[in-house]
């Protein structure tokens, strides 16, 4: 297919291939979750697969491949890893707060009220808002 691949010794090629498959498989699984999970707050967990281990293993694969190909340590992929580690939590928490704010302003019953107000609603610490999976709900209706 392409020429540089041939210049790499077998073990490095094998490890790179496995890491690449693992990384892209995880990224794909994450996006599948984005498509398949039913509620927004559940979907927020899905892309984390790609942003942690998914891009991590592809970066390790790239580091290994270029280090072997160019016969010198190529480490600048660490920068993307650091960037991902620092930025993903920020974007996700910001987005979660924005979604919570929007849902609360529409009085969505599935979303807990603001933490300060929870006491006023005589809610004890540790009490939880739990939503059963949609299928279970359907099952419960059928049972009735």
């Amino acid at each position: 297919m392409s020429i540089p691949v041939l210049n790499v010794p077998g073990w490095a090629a094998g490890v790179t291939a496995v890491l690449l498959l693992l990384g892209s498989g995880l990224a794909f699984t994450g996006c599948l979750g984005l498509l398949r999970l039913s509620r927004f707050y559940d979907r927020m967990h899905a892309p984390t697969l790609g942003t942690t281990l998914g891009i991590g293993s592809v970066l390790i694969a790239s580091m290994l491949f270029f280090s072997v190909l160019q016969a010198r340590p190529v480490l600048h992929e660490i920068l993307i890893a650091i960037l991902m580690v620092v930025t993903t939590p920020i974007t996700l928490t910001l987005l979660a707060r924005a979604a919570l704010y929007r849902d609360r302003s529409e009085d969505d019953p599935d979303v807990p009220p603001m933490i300060g107000k929870q006491r006023m609603h005589s809610l004890q610490e540790g009490e939880v808002f739990v939503q059963e999976e949609e299928q279970d709900r359907g099952q419960a209706l059928l049972d009735e």
């Binding site: 927020m44 984390t48 942690t52 993903t88």
Partner: peptide
């Protein structure tokens, strides 16, 4: 937040 499956929503 970086751990898949858990998410810090509000503080």
């Amino acid at each position: 937040t970086a751990t898949p499956g858990t998410l810090w929503v509000e503080f």
